[in-house]
């Protein structure tokens, strides 16, 4: 357990739980949350005891309703905004985690909040979950990876439809288009996410991490190279088994 201002971070039995914790403002993402997440993700990445990560939002109403525009609307200058984006690359850190990451989504999951969920590997949603990227209707574009992660998850047709219109996607549609892996009809999605996390944490951690690595790296290159990556990783696993 460690103390952050805007998130709760706990780690138990191989599962790290990150709770976005600004429930009064629907867990809106602000500068402090960026810094807290950046630090927590660094801890997770460095901790071999952590086998699985779960993200959720505090309170009844939202996973995260988006960025706090009172803070992100006013950067000192474009050059500094760009520099900070790359220096405190919280999204690169989240997408680069070796452990599988599960988002347990309820209520509003909008803008940066949806982008956090998209940077996770698996998404479990409650029936009341509402997704959307409304940035273009505010004169912006998603800037936490959403223009890239969404089309890689649901394909460009749905990604363009969602981003150019900024419309809201309910849980049923999210399941149909592959945006979420499962819907939990009764109650919140967290229990189901915790069960899945415990299941993944019970598996050989090297096998789980290596399988994730093969899929993530392989999809980011040509099929030939992807097959080569898989071959090398499988060989590494085989040698390790032989040693044991």
């Amino acid at each position: 357990m460690s103390a952050f201002e805007t998130i709760l971070f706990e780690s138990k039995d191989g599962v790290a739980l990150v709770t976005l914790n600004r429930p009064k403002v629907l867990n809106a993402y602000n500068v402090q949350m960026r810094d807290d997440l950046y630090e927590a993700l660094g801890l997770i990445d460095a901790d071999d005891e952590i086998r699985v990560v779960v993200f959720r939002g505090a309170g009844d109403r939202a996973f995260c309703a988006g960025a706090d525009l009172t803070e992100f609307g006013t950067a000192p200058s474009q050059a500094i905004a760009r520099q900070v984006r790359f220096e405190r690359d919280v999204w690169g850190r989240l997408l680069g985690l070796r452990q599988p990451v599960i988002a347990a989504v309820h209520g509003y999951c909008l803008g940066s909040g949806m982008e956090i969920a998209l940077a996770c590997d698996l998404r479990i949603a409650s029936a009341d979950a509402r997704f959307g990227l409304p940035e273009t209707s505010l004169g912006m574009i998603p800037a936490a990876g959403g223009t890239q992660t969404l089309p890689r998850i649901v394909g460009p047709s749905w990604a363009l439809d969602a981003q150019l219109t900024g419309r809201t996607i309910d849980a049923r549609e999210a399941l149909r288009i592959g945006l979420v892996n499962r819907i939990v009809d009764q109650g919140g999605p967290f229990d189901e996410a915790a069960r899945l996390a415990a299941h993944l944490a019970s598996r050989d951690p090297a096998a789980v991490r290596t399988a994730k690595e093969a899929v993530v790296r392989g999809l980011d290159t040509t099929l030939d190279r992807g097959l080569d990556i898989e071959r090398r990783l499988a060989l590494r696993m085989a040698l390790r088994s032989a040693e044991n």
Binding site: L69, A75, Q78, A81, R82, G92, G139, M140, I141, P142
Partner: peptide
């Protein structure tokens, strides 16, 4: 992701973004 970030920062120069916020 760098392309996205560059375009997003470039949008900071637009008056429509200020108006949207």
């Amino acid at each position: 992701l760098r392309l996205e970030a560059d375009l997003a920062v470039l949008l900071h120069t637009s008056s429509d973004r200020s108006e949207g916020i």
